[in-house]
Simulated assay, not measured.
Amino acid sequence: MAALAAFVAANTRLQAPPHVPEIRLHLADEAVDLWHRTEAELETIGLPPPYWAFAWAGGQALARHVLDHPHLVAGRSVLVFAAGSGLEAVAAVKAGARHVLATDIDRYALAAMTLNAAANGVEFAMSGADWIGAPVDGYEVVLLGDVFFERPLADRVGAWAASAVAAGALVLVGDPGRSYLPRDRMDALADYRVPTTRALEDAEVKHTTVWRFRG
């Protein structure tokens, strides 16, 4: 883990996401450069691209919503799926969550989350397991930031989110209009205009919605 953390620290800069300025994260300045270098270095061991190095619009909106509406998580147990940088996990802790578990299958994401938790003076649990399909018993809130960007993943996450709702969890989704977002299964809670970068997105500001998943 030390080597992974060193890689994260060497290829990022501690900075505040534009829509959540009260949180500081290790983020990449040159998105395309890091993306290509990381892909080249990790290709032989099958690790995914460095989603952890960027504050995606859906995650920023979801973190903003949690911070502005702390009653959603205060005193509750929270599961953050595909947590990446850990932005939503940090926000949940700051909003008063009783327990937070941030999950991501990328070991570099876990290293980034460790650094980012320390940078913000917070603590939360982490897991590298694939949680899709796993029961969420004991977790009262599930946070999904920007995860509906491809069909196979969207179908799996949608079914899992429905099972979480059936188990009694509040499932919140942050999304900037990805193609495979199941809007017919969700209720919109709030809209945000999130600054982003054209190196990653098709606009410098993304209209992003926080949704409640119905099931």
Rank of each mutant, 00 (worst) to 15 (best):
A188Y: 03
E201R: 15
A83T: 03
G86I: 00
W160R: 03
P135G: 02
F124E: 06
A125P: 08
P152M: 04
G215Y: 09
G46F: 08
V165H: 10
P195F: 11
D68R: 12
H99Q: 09
L170G: 08
P48T: 06
I105E: 01
M126I: 13
L47R: 08
W35H: 15
S85K: 04
V93I: 13
A129N: 13
Y139H: 15
G86P: 02
A95S: 05
W131M: 15
D191N: 09
P176V: 04
D104E: 08
L170I: 11
L115V: 01
E43G: 10
Y51H: 14
P50K: 06
V8F: 00
G145R: 09
A161M: 10
R198E: 14
R193I: 11
G145K: 14
A28W: 03
L87H: 01
V80H: 03
V205R: 08
R156E: 07
N116D: 02
L189N: 06
H99R: 13
I45Q: 12
P182A: 12
G58N: 10
H69V: 15
R212Q: 07
T196I: 11
D104Q: 07
A92Q: 07
L47A: 08
Y180K: 10
A134C: 07
I23H: 07
V165F: 08
P50S: 10
V100I: 10
A125W: 05
Y180N: 11
G168S: 03
D130E: 11
M113F: 05
L101A: 01
H99K: 12
A53I: 03
D187A: 15
M1D: 09
F148R: 09
H207M: 12
F149H: 07
R107W: 10
A169R: 04
P135W: 05
V93T: 11
